[in-house]
Amino acid sequence: MSAQTMPTQQAVSDKVIEVEILRYRPEQDEKPFPQLFEVPYSPDMSILEALQYIKDHLDSTVSFRWSCRMAICGSCGLMVNNVPKLGCKAFLRDYYPQKIKLEALANFPIERDLVVDMGDFIKKLEEIKPYIIPATDDKCLSEGTYKQTPEQMEKYKQYSMCINCGLCYAACPQYGLDSKFTGPAALALLARYNRDSRDAGSAERMKIVNQEEGVWSCTFVGYCSVVCPKGVDPAAAIQLLKVESSKDYLIGMFKPD
């Protein structure tokens, strides 16, 4: 299909943009190295589309992840000129005529080319008990659903918009220094459940929050919230959790459990 559409596209514009990709194929490369490609430029082309052009026409061995192409699945995260971005939400027009430098997401081990190993991030997400923990003396299923007012939903809605893209982990200098830190998205998700009126698991999750590698590894740099493509504002979630953790600390001093 692309072979048919290409000539017309090229006729529209003969401008090209340089795209440099940091390649790494563990079975043959000793270490990552940059490779330069020239891609026909058009202002409405996303970086993901540029990568697809490269894979279809220039070098089929380039590896990268993507799925939805509309900032929903969170799989196309990468470093664009050293800034964490979604490939499908960043456009060539914002860089042209400058060269674009693409690298795998920072702070994660490279699996291949632009594909990273997200294992640690997924583990962090699982560790914070990301599900509603109902009160034990809870009502029976037959008693119907849990109702929530718009105000109650507003308390956590923003923190539930995360698409697990990992951009905030690539942005976080503290995670980069010490990956034991639970990290922005996982803590925002934790806040999302702790702030939900249907949940009764706060006490369990506060144990995670209260640790050094919980909220207390954060020094409020705030870059996570800058790069987040969904406006989750994980930095704010962590600051709120710090206040909660401090309250918890004071209470713990008077009645240790």
Partner: peptide, 8 residues
């Protein structure tokens, strides 16, 4: 879980 004294 080990509680941090950072709140102080």
């Amino acid at each position: 879980y080990i509680r941090s004294h950072e709140p102080i």
